[in-house]
Computed example of a mutant assay.
Amino acid sequence: MQDILVSLVASAVFVTLAWTLSKTARRVLRGVAAHLLRLDVEEVFAGGGEVSADLTRELSMAREVSILTSRGMDLQRGPFQELWRRCQVGRCRCRVLLPRLEVPAGERDWINDREEELQAFDTSFGAGQLRRQITSTHDYLTPLAAVGVEVRGYNFPHIARVILTEQAVYVTRYRADEHGWNTPVYKYRRGETYDLWTRVFTKLWQETPTG
């Protein structure tokens, strides 16, 4: 009986170490491949749940944060709670781009466009559900406007969630057949991809109204 118990414990330790080492090995291999191919990707996370710890750590060190998102429900929980607290005490400044709720006549409504995509695989969407969720995020962020958080509305295709800090950018591409939280999150260090998304954000920020 004792031998069986020892064997089970040893097996559990082996499996745990193997999983830990394999995960570390995957990260090392990705880093080596990125270096050899001259890519600036630093890490790839399977989805929103996996990136949470890394994002929390990155946001805790940032002084400037820029966020481009669609419905932005994640901004009401998780890593962003500490970010808003840091903004309240003046330790960080944050700019947020959310979809514009009211679209001028003659312009395409990209909220409706994204909702049509979501409705195709999630029946909870339709009849303005996405717009209501975006409204909720606008309402949530409104009280933060006086404490280092500025929000502007954009009318542009919902192609990705982008989180920029001084050192890195997290990119979650919005697919036409999947929710953003289920798709991979790519973390890029400063480089060509970082510069590209910084430029995209800056252009949208300059061309969109407040509120």
Rank of each mutant, 00 (worst) to 15 (best):
S11N: 07
G153R: 15
R173Y: 15
V149I: 05
T208S: 15
E166L: 04
E178D: 09
Q76S: 07
E116Q: 12
R95V: 01
T208L: 05
G148V: 13
E178G: 12
F156A: 14
G211N: 14
F121S: 14
Y194N: 08
T172F: 09
C94T: 15
I163C: 00
T20L: 05
Q76W: 02
L68V: 07
P104K: 10
E117Q: 11
V15P: 15
E64F: 01
H158Y: 08
A62H: 04
R91S: 04
A33K: 13
L17C: 09
C92Q: 06
R30Q: 04
N182E: 03
A12H: 04
R189C: 09
D3M: 11
E150T: 11
R199G: 00
A160S: 11
Y188G: 02
Y140Q: 08
Y174H: 10
L21F: 13
Q119D: 08
P157L: 00
M61K: 15
A176C: 07
L37W: 14
G90L: 07
W197F: 14
Y186N: 09
G31M: 04
P79L: 04
V171S: 02
F80R: 00
T193F: 04
G153M: 13
E43V: 15
E82H: 12
L144R: 08
G72K: 01
P99R: 12
T210I: 10
G78V: 12
D3F: 15
T208R: 13
T193C: 00
R131K: 14
L37C: 06
G180T: 15
V171N: 06
L36H: 08
A160Q: 08
R175H: 02
G49T: 10
N182M: 06
R93P: 01
R77F: 00
G49E: 03
T123L: 09
G72E: 03
P143N: 04
